[in-house]
Amino acid sequence: MITLNHYLALGGMLFCIGLYGALAKKNAIAILMGIELMLNAVNINLVAFNHYLEPSKVVGQVFAIFVIVVAAAEVAVGLALVLNIYRRRLESNVDDFNWLKW
């Protein structure tokens, strides 16, 4: 029997993996991927909560769809930025993205 806890555990693990990727990776693309993982973890949580706690409503699903849309937009913007930076600097290592530093 798969309970809510299983989903939450999955979501938690996915989130932690995503977080690790976002914080530890040097490549901008990898960071973006980490962020996607985190967002998907949240989606899993939302859908799971909805299913187990309030099955009559579809609030969680709606939220998840919103998150997906926002994530898609974010990836588009993020990739565009990374691409542009790469073209100018031939670099996708975030340690070198420091022009805003003092």
């Binding site: 977080l19 976002a22 914080l23 530890a24 960071i31 975030v94 340690d95 993205f97 420091n98 022009w99 805003l100 530093k101 003092w102």
Partner: peptide, 17 residues
């Protein structure tokens, strides 16, 4: 105070998190 602004993306992310 501007030295807090390291420019390192992941430091910011860590602080936020």
């Amino acid at each position: 105070l501007r030295y807090i602004q390291t420019g390192n993306l992941q430091t910011y992310a860590l602080v936020i998190f």
